[in-house]
């Protein structure tokens, strides 16, 4: 993983949030590396990565942000099932979009969703955890990129 690789995910994040509404800018704070615990929030969509690169890409957010996104998508009524569906779909979109840079050998799994800030996923030990902080409509989320 290098800066250019991280940039691919940042472009994907911008693309996703601008697709909801162009005039509401998403703020992406400087990415950082977190060696110890991962900053999981209320809902986490996890995509396992295999092929030439191994690891996971996780999108994690609180319910408020995800509910706001669902409102932009004209979903009503909003419930926990829809929120879980959405967080998995965002993780899928951001991971799949990265194939633009990484190519077809960047194999992505279907999403696994965890709630309550607890994530049971076996991350490869040799991965470094890149954390990309995202702020949209005052709410914070993170994209975690843990790849070999």
């Amino acid at each position: 993983m290098n800066d250019q690789d991280i940039q691919v995910f940042i472009s994907g994040i911008r693309r996703y949030f601008e697709s909801l509404r162009k005039d509401l800018k998403v703020v992406i704070e400087p990415p950082f590396i977190k060696e110890d615990e991962k900053p999981f929030l209320e809902y986490t969509g996890i995509i396992g990565i295999s092929g030439k690169t191994r690891g996971a890409v996780c999108f994690t957010a609180n319910g408020v942000m995800l509910e706001n996104i669902l409102r932009f998508l004209n979903e009503a009524p909003i419930n926990g099932e829809l929120i879980c569906d959405l967080v998995g779909e965002i993780a899928n979109t951001l991971s799949g979009n990265a194939r633009e840079e990484f190519g077809r050998d960047f194999l992505i799994s279907v999403p696994v969703v965890s709630t309550g800030g607890e994530v049971r996923f076996r991350f490869p030990k040799e991965c470094r955890n890149y954390v990309i902080p995202i702020i949209w409509q005052t709410e914070k989320a993170y994209l975690l990129v843990c790849l070999t």
């Binding site: 899928n92 979109t93 951001l94 991971s95 799949g96 979009n97 990265a98 194939r99 633009e100 990484f102 190519g103 077809r104 960047f106 992505i108």
Partner: peptide
Amino acid sequence: ISALRDKAT
């Protein structure tokens, strides 16, 4: 309609 953004796919 897919998230997979590579030309080969």
